[in-house]
Amino acid sequence: MSGFFRFIDSSVGKKIVMALTGLFIILFLVEHLAGNLLLLLNDNGKIFEEYSAFMAGSLNIPVRIVEIGLFFFIIYHIVNGVRLWWGNRVARGFSYKVNDPSENSTFFSRFMIWGGTIVFIFLVIHLRTFFFPYRLGNPSNTMYEGAVEAFSNPYYSIFYIIALIFLAFHLVHGFQSAFQSLGIRYNKYTAIIKNFGIVFSILLCAGFALIPLYFLFNAGGN
C-alpha cells in the first residue's frame, strides 16, 4: 500500500476521512436545502423545476463531477463508518456488566452508528422516491408534483421528519467531531464550534422538515 492509502486507512486517517467526507456532505445538504426551499415559493414549482432542470442538466459538467464525488464520498463515509464501528467493537472484546457512559459522554456521540444507519435507510428510500424515477427513469409527472404527492401522504411525511431528527442527532456530534478529527481544536474556539454545530444541525433539519409540514398542512390547498 502506498503512503497515502496507509494514511487514510490508519485509525487517525479513517477519522480524517470521516471528517472530510462528512463536511462535504454537510455542504451538499446546505445546497440541497436551499434548492428544496424553492418548493415553498407558491408558484406551482416553476422556479423549482427550473432549478432541478439546471442541476440535472447533462451538460452541466461541474455539477456532474461533484455529483459523482458526492456519491463516492457518501459510500466511503458509510463503509468507513461501519469499519470503524466494527473495529472498535472488536477492540472492547468483553462488555462491562455495569456501564454508565452517560456520566462521561453525550448520547449523540455514542449514537453515531445507529443514527447513521437510520439516515442511510432513509437515504435509500429517499433516492427511490425522488432521485431514481426523476433523474434516471421516465417520470409520469414533474418532480414538483412528485414531491407534493409524496408529502401529502402523512405516513411518508412523518417518516421523513423522524429521519430528519436522526440526521440532526448525527450532525450534533458529527459537526464538532469533524473539526476535532482534523485537529482543529483550540480552547478559545471549542465552545463556538460546538454551539454552532448544534444550532446549525437543528436549523438545517428544521429547514428540511418545513417542506413536508408545509405540504401536509396545505395539501389540496392549491
Partner: peptide
C-alpha cells in the same frame, strides 16, 4: 480502537488530561 471523539477518556482521566491533546496528535 479508533477515537471517535466521545470525550469519555478525558472526562474519566484521573489527571484530567484535556481533549486538545488528541487534536494535537491529529
Amino acid at each position: 480502537g479508533a477515537c471517535t471523539n466521545t470525550e469519555a477518556c478525558s472526562a474519566e482521566c484521573p489527571k484530567e488530561i484535556p481533549m486538545d491533546v488528541i487534536a494535537q496528535l491529529r
